[in-house]
């Protein structure tokens, strides 16, 4: 008896916590809009926005997609000019959220849907949650590089036989790459990148861009890049193979937060709750190839489980502190 009552209470509590109340939805609908600055790949963020708009008719999601570092630049520029447009901020550079929180630019919002997320996916003070996670990996074009000669480790990328055959994305644009560089610098030191730069890499901006460059054969080897985007490109039938180096794979958890001066705070809260629901998180896993913090989400069979990989996690505080250094040294080695 006591047990069933307990279960009832729990299930009641779950339904109460995971579903936004009618009042909250009403308040959000009155605002009618949520403005989302996001670094999630354009097709993925558009898909997520449409999922939300289908569920909550009458609330429009304005997607503004650019690289993580550009999102931060926008947010800071607008804050300093006193412009209040952004509602929800999402980048792949966890350091940004340390900075934004410190500057008082975030709204504290304890998301009900975030309760069950593991520690690495939420701020202890309730300012931000990890909306998604991905890895930074090596990839190659199997039409141009045989499995046998393909590089298997980060160190093998330094081999001069890859000269003018590699592509890298840019930490000055992408939060994923910012995280990647710090993770590898901690592992191998700056020497690694100094050596790598000798291979005359093709430099693109977004962590999503290497997938297209590798698939088209413009450069057959990607020395980094967002795993989910490589995976999506592969699934579309492009010639791509992904390698998860044994020495460790940088794990990138991308937080989401609500802006302190959000012009549509209720819609922002509703949107935040929504993107942390199982429905949304499962969609990100199924269609977009992402990992998530949601404990109940399942992943496609052809993707490795996170627990089977050696993950290289970086500390958001360190990411924040070394942001300028990483950008400067990268430009020093690679030229731009």
């Amino acid at each position: 008896m006591k047990k069933t009552f307990c279960l009832m209470l729990i299930s009641l509590w779950i339904s109460w916590t995971t579903v936004s109340s009618a009042q909250e939805i009403e308040a959000a609908k009155k605002e009618g809009k949520v403005i989302w600055y996001t670094s999630l790949a354009l097709p993925s963020s558009t898909a997520l926005a449409h999922l939300f708009m289908n569920k909550y008719k009458g609330i429009e999601v304005e997607v503004h997609r650019t690289g993580s570092q550009r999102v931060l630049q926008r947010v800071m520029q607008e804050a300093s000019a006193g412009i209040k447009t952004v509602d929800v901020i999402h980048t792949s550079d966890a350091g940004h959220f340390v900075l934004l929180k410190e500057k008082g630019l975030l709204l504290k919002y304890v998301a009900k849907g975030g309760e069950s997320f593991p520690a690495g996916f939420k701020d202890s003070d309730g300012f931000y949650y990890g909306m998604r996670a991905t890895l930074s990996v090596i990839a190659y074009n199997p039409k141009l590089v045989s499995d046998k000669e393909a590089p298997k480790t980060w160190k093998e990328l330094l081999d001069s036989k890859w000269r003018a055959k590699q592509v890298t994305a840019h930490p000055g644009y992408s939060g994923i790459i910012m995280t990647h560089v710090l993770a590898l610098v901690k592992q191998y030191g700056w020497n690694y990148f100094q050596e790598l730069a000798k291979n005359k890499l093709h430099i693109v901006q977004s962590a999503n861009d290497p997938a297209g460059v590798v698939a088209s054969g413009e450069r057959p080897v990607g020395v980094n890049g967002a795993e989910y985007f490589y995976y999506k490109t592969l699934k579309q039938g492009n010639p791509i193979k992904i390698l998860y180096p044994k020495e460790g794979v940088p794990l990138v958890v991308s937080p989401t937060a609500i802006a302190k001066d959000a012009p549509h705070p209720n819609a922002a809260k509703l949107f935040t709750e929504f993107i942390l629901t199982k429905t949304a998180q499962q969609m990100l896993a199924d269609n977009e190839g992402l990992y998530t913090g949601h404990p109940e989400v399942t992943y496609p069979n052809d993707k490795p489980k996170l627990k089977d990989l050696k993950l290289l996690a970086v500390d958001p505080d360190e990411l924040e502190k070394r942001n300028a250094e990483i950008r400067k040294r990268f430009v020093e080695f690679f030229g731009a």
Partner: peptide
Amino acid sequence: FDLKEEGQI
């Protein structure tokens, strides 16, 4: 220009 940086050819 934004699309270029993401490779949306």
